[in-house]
């Protein structure tokens, strides 16, 4: 594959910042990601949602090339980076950054905050005075004082550390930010401030974001589009509104109904779908549709035939039971 595969800009519609095609990652026998295609358009937030073991974090790491794909393509701003050598990859690194879940373990304890945030600039050849200025600016953008540059990560609170991670990720002005569960390790009130910050920065700086999370409430707050993963495959992909108002895939429906809402009368009158069993191991994923072992509406065909992700009523859905116009079962109404 080469840059010849670059997609032409049609009618002024911008090429996606990031596009993955048939992405596969196997760790030995573990099929963590098993054929995922998705794209993130400039300036949009795409949420990649799934439970533990769904492979969502692996997708994020493949996109920033912390991992090498087993097969498939990752394109950043139209350039296929999945087969580039480390050296050839380097200029593309500044177009994509990642923020991890736990800022305590992703910030070097021996480096000052200033050095941490300035490191991407140093690697991209900025002078030290340029760096100091950009670092100061960036710290202010994430709601920290410039003086924090001289401190060490362990002197900061969890919320402040995550702000430092975000500053480091955005200092080189990437066109794509991969945010992997950026608020999951934080307390509720601090989560709110980090989510607000991400929303503000995304609006001001205009980067595209792949927001990897299991927190549906945060998705509703931040995302433009939602992709739902289950056991290494996409179950559904749709604009935010449609995912929350008209989920098509039985797994999406179950996931939405299982997340409790913080309002007692509403929560207690909702019908919840309790899925039987746990997520199967990705060592030996079920045949056919991977969700069939827990799906309340599965039929024989689901156990043998893998459903393709296809257009159905304005969403992309991988389910045999959903018709082309999007009609299909709602597991929240099944006894």
């Amino acid at each position: 594959m080469s840059a010849a595969l670059q997609e032409p800009v049609v009618d002024g519609a911008p090429a996606p910042v990031c596009e993955v095609v048939d992405l596969v990652k196997h760790f030995g026998p573990v099929r963590a990601v098993d054929g995922i295609s998705l794209h993130v358009d400039p300036g949009t937030v795409v949420a990649l949602v799934g439970e533990s073991g769904s492979g969502k974090s692996t997708v994020g790491r493949l996109i920033v090339r912390l991992l090498e794909p087993t097969s498939g393509t990752v394109r950043l701003n139209g350039v296929d980076v999945s087969s580039l050598t480390r050296r050839a990859m380097r200029p593309h690194r500044r177009t994509v950054s990642i923020v991890f879940q736990d800022p305590a373990s992703s910030l070097d304890p021996r480096m000052t905050v200033g050095a941490i945030v300035g490191e991407p600039l140093r690697l991209h050849g900025a002078s030290s005075s340029q760096r100091a200025e950009r670092v100061g600016e960036m710290l202010e953008k994430v709601g920290l004082r410039r003086g924090v540059a001289g401190r060490y990560a362990h002197e900061l609170s969890g919320g402040q550390r995550q702000r430092v991670s975000i500053a480091r990720a955005l200092v080189s002005r990437p066109s794509l930010l991969v945010a992997d569960e950026p608020t999951s390790a934080l307390d509720v009130s601090v989560q709110a401030s980090v989510l607000n910050l991400l929303a503000d920065l995304q609006r001001d700086l205009g980067f595209a974001c792949l927001f990897i999370t299991h927190d549906l409430a945060a998705v509703e707050y931040l995302a433009d589009e939602v992709a739902v993963m289950y056991l290494g495959k996409l179950a559904e992909r749709a604009p935010r509104e449609r995912i929350f108002t008209a989920p098509r895939h039985p797994y999406t429906q179950a996931l939405l109904s299982a997340a409790p809402v913080p309002d007692p009368p509403t929560q207690r009158s909702r019908r919840r779908v309790v899925l039987s069993g746990d997520i199967p191991s990705s060592l030996s994923p079920p045949s056919g549709c991977r969700f069939h072992t827990r799906c309340p509406v599965a039929v024989d065909r689901c156990t043998t035939e893998v459903p393709d992700l296809r257009e159905a009523g304005g969403s992309l859905v991988a389910c045999h039971l959903v018709a082309d116009d999007g009609t299909g079962p709602d597991v929240r109404r099944v006894e």
Binding site: V188, S189, Q191, A192, L195, A217, A218, E220, Y221, R240, F244, V261, P262, D263, T266
Partner: peptide, 13 residues
């Protein structure tokens, strides 16, 4: 605390 939790009805995105 209650206002810090994003939720469908509270935030509306």
């Amino acid at each position: 605390l209650l206002g810090a939790v994003p939720s469908a009805r509270v935030s509306g995105g």
